[in-house]
Design a protein around this nucleic acid. Structure first.
Lengths: 209, 209
DNA sequence: TAGATTGTTAATCGATTAACAATC
DNA sequence: TAGATTGTTAATCGATTAACAATC
């Protein structure tokens, strides 16, 4: 079965983009799309688009194209967005609070179920629907809500510690916002959002265009 | 001259990482590093590291390695971090406010000099050192501070409009936080931070590990 | 049926890695 | 000088793109 083969990172990274565009098409009432159409809209090569879907067995019909809703739902399933994905946020600073407000109710398949910190002065404060709790309470929250993903929004210096703690409580995915490289841990996946890095790349391009 | 050749995207994206590691080395008082050392620390292949620096003419000494401070400063110059890079933030929602607090005073070479919105109820509010101003004032701010980069943190629906406005006022780089694909504009560089996409990729990996 | 467009293999392209001569 | 490690070219690998037979 095609699913068995390892899907490359490059392909996975394009899936959310397809997903977004297909959602737009659905909202526009378009029910059918060809790889050529999608190419024009996404800027990707039509061969690449077909190749990407082919990794999962292919979702189209020769001579017709792709059914928008069907394709949308297939990608939804692949990305695991048909289930509830609960996340916890470690660190209730600027970014942590912004995330807590951003994922209130299963926004796009993800939902923040807890935000944690250690700073006494902010414990108990309400961020949207959530209350900032002490990290000591995190283990319970993770187990009760079957949480697999933790967003790390603490200062770099404490990132390692926060990650170790999260993994000990059963977390399998780290969404890291600290501008530091976290050491790989077996069976745990790390996805970095290095804002500064991204801004530096942009700065370079602006100055060298 | 080597600088003239087009540097690939992949190389540029690794530069901030080198920069961060070299800063760490400096803080640890380490003055000399080989590509093999850097390889162990960054997880990158030593050949790749040398190849990357070779793109810019090479910064090392045969039989010795690289001088940490020299290399750090060269990368700093390449990334344009030896100058002040002012940015404006369009959209004073959760993310916009978090960014404004994150770049108060030339943090890592970048400085937010203005944050703009249209919502009357929040205009005038202080975010750290900055006051939320109406977007009508943005043009003046961009010219006065020679701003080249705008962070877009408005809802997707208004992203296109915000970008057009920014470009009209002379912006050359768009740091886009709206979960939408912006159409390419000649002479303007776009760098996307698609938080949802990143989280979806993480979710996929967690479920398929 | 004829036309369209996928699924799938093959070719190309670019990025990563290996190798080693140059040289400090 | 001998050892180390870069600069630089060559080989490998993987991702992208092209081509076209299959088939709706």
């Amino acid at each position: 079965m095609k699913y068995e083969r390892k899907i490359s990172e490059a392909v996975i990274k394009r899936l959310p983009r397809y997903y977004r565009f297909l959602e737009d098409l659905m909202n526009m009432g378009i029910s059918r799309v060809s790889s050529k159409d999608l190419s024009v809209r996404t800027g990707l090569n039509p061969s690449q688009i077909r190749q990407d879907f082919y990794c999962f067995g292919g979702f189209g019909l020769q001579g017709y194209g792709y059914d928008v809703e069907f394709l949308f739902n297939e990608i939804k399933k692949i990305l695991g967005l048909d289930a509830i994905n609960n996340i916890v946020i470690i660190g209730a600073g600027n970014i942590g609070q912004a995330l807590a407000k951003y994922f209130p109710q299963q926004k796009k398949g993800f939902k923040a179920v807890g935000i944690f910190d250690v700073k006494p002065s902010i414990l108990g404060a309400k961020i949207g629907e959530l209350e900032i709790q002490h990290v000591d309470k995190m283990g319970d929250c993770i187990r009760e809500n079957n949480v697999k993903i933790a967003a790390i929004t603490v200062p770099s210096l404490y990132a390692r510690e926060a990650v170790d703690m999260a993994i000990k409580q059963g977390i399998k995915g780290i969404w890291n916002f600290a501008p530091t490289e976290l050491k790989e841990v077996p069976d745990v996946v790390i996805e970095n959002i290095h804002l500064i890095d991204s801004l530096m790349v942009l700065g370079y391009k602006v100055n060298n265009n």
